[in-house]
Design a protein around this nucleic acid. Structure first.
Lengths: 303, 303
DNA sequence: TCAAAAGTGTTATCCTTACACCCATGT
DNA sequence: ACATGGGTGTAAGGATAACACTTTTGA
């Protein structure tokens, strides 16, 4: 439409790096505070993707398995406005196999439900939800004009009033809480128990990442990027449950996984906890080419 | 990880604007050539989204209904490198109700199957596909080392050898053709009949947009952004078919739409073509709040 | 009367979900 | 013996896909 003019902007990469250990999904933050790892996009890199990959390996010594672009947004530059310009922030979701971090690492892993306690339903509906919903409803009632619309939105996103809980609506729930001013990021100064706040909009980015991952595991075999070489089917299930924040139905889970030829037996077994020793499986890498295209399924059928 | 340093980049917005008329999905290009409308991101705008929306309204007089971010990528600045920097290109998919364009408009609509003739299966499998596949197979055979992998990839993306056609794999098919050097963009100089090339990587961006839209119509009611106020169910079906590049099964299509309460009768009928007059419907806007969250379905069940 | 499009009814099939139950091992 | 986890069989219910058929209009 127009030729490119002289507008320039900061370009910054922000990474949501996820690992699962001890049945908890975790996100990497900087040791210094509640900040997602991020840095400038340097010109040496071929692509954004490779730039981020290299940069993470360099700085954290964690090799990234799966890497996916999340979203790009622009804000008025928060930092010093030498140029008075924009900051363009490109966010990525990366999956990592957590290992003992190098001692000198500047990073630390936090369970992601510390930031979103209402998102974990593995032990049933958190008691907190009732409180959250009543606060939201009070806020909605004060919004004359579209009270009904807001109330329905609350009911749908939080699964109240006959609606069932949809684990994918992480971002929608976050935004509702944000709009209602219930989060520290949106002006609430009191202690609300509504999760740990993060720097700037990083918690929103994390919500986007969680939502994307929860959606992905249902139709692409990405969970395996979070698993060790070999694993039992229960470990795999626990990992999916950790991500989805739900408990699943064991027999059906196993069948669905095996039906799809996603895994193959290693021939070995594990008997760490009491109980019958479990067969160990490994991911069939060959499936990746096939399924990246034709799609695969993980069940989110409740227990 | 590091404080933001002095890296700056061009930030550019590129729009894939789609409309459907006369059973053809169309994409807006500049009158001057095979170029998607794009322009610099200016600092006045609140957000990227609103910036693009405003800019399109200003320049083309088409109000955008649905707008969704597609992808962000960075290339070494193709334009003059006054700063020797990067160009960051943020692409969007926008849905538009096509009307007669203002006379002075700099834009023109092109059927998207001019760019991707192999993507339209409404008249059955295009004869061309056989030719494409054999060319691809010749190329694959010359790639010692992973011939088998390539052959399987070809079979999967193009639905040969027992695999069924998956309409969502638009980008994967484009990339395969690109890698094989069969497209003008990747060095083929002869006339191949493999669709009309576009400026720079714009055809790739279009492929991304088509793929996204084809995926979206299956679980979100976005088609309606392309429809006039009121329409018959057959018009709606033809529109979905145009987008998906497939023909659908009429009775099932109608049932699925009506079951979901996506539409309501206007009470009027239309009898333009010969045949029994059809009831006119309108989209139930109320459903948007409900379904943007809970998901809806359009059938892609073949005729 | 025929063609063209609008509609309805019904069935076969597959997938999802749930329930019931047995197996192997450690304490 | 019993708790813990591993593992199998199967049936109910719903969604999808396919087929056959009736209805209403214009030419």
């Amino acid at each position: 439409m127009e030729s490119v003019t002289g507008y320039f902007a900061h370009a910054e990469l922000t990474a949501v790096l996820v690992a699962v250990t001890g049945d908890q999904p975790r996100v990497m933050t900087l040791r210094k505070g509640e900040v997602l790892p991020s840095g400038p996009f340097e010109m040496g890199h071929r692509t954004l993707q490779s730039g981020l990959r290299e940069w993470v390996r360099e700085k954290t010594a964690y090799p990234i398995g799966y890497l996916e672009q999340l979203y790009t947004f622009a804000d008025r530059d928060r930092g010093a406005g030498a140029h008075g310009g924009r900051r363009i922030s490109i966010s990525y979701l990366g999956l990592v196999r957590e290992r003992s971090a190098p001692a000198e690492a500047q990073t630390v892993w936090h369970g992601w439900y510390e930031y979103f306690p209402w998102e974990d339903r593995r032990l049933g509906r958190p008691a907190q939800i009732a409180d959250i919903c009543s606060k939201l409803e009070v806020w909605a009632a004060a919004n004359s004009g579209h009270v009904d619309e807001l109330l329905r939105r609350i009911a749908l996103t939080f699964g109240t009033g006959g609606n069932r809980w949809n684990e994918d609506l992480v971002l929608q729930r976050y935004e509702l809480l944000y709009e209602a001013g219930l989060l520290a990021e949106s002006g609430n100064t009191g202690e609300t128990g509504l999760g740990r706040p993060m720097f700037a909009d990083h918690r929103r980015i994390l919500a986007t990442g969680i939502a994307r991952l929860r959606a992905q595991i249902k139709y692409r075999p990405v969970v395996f990027e979070l698993m060790p070489e070999s694993f039992t089917l229960l470990r795999l299930q626990r990992t999916v449950e950790a991500l989805a924040g739900l408990t699943l139905h064991k027999p059906n889970f196993r069948r669905l996984i095996e039906q799809q030829d996603l895994v193959e037996e290693t021939g070995e077994t594990e008997s760490e906890n009491a109980g019958r020793p479990a067969k160990l499986f490994r991911f069939r890498h060959a499936i990746l080419e096939e399924r990246a295209l034709s799609g695969s399924k993980l069940p989110i059928s409740r227990n």
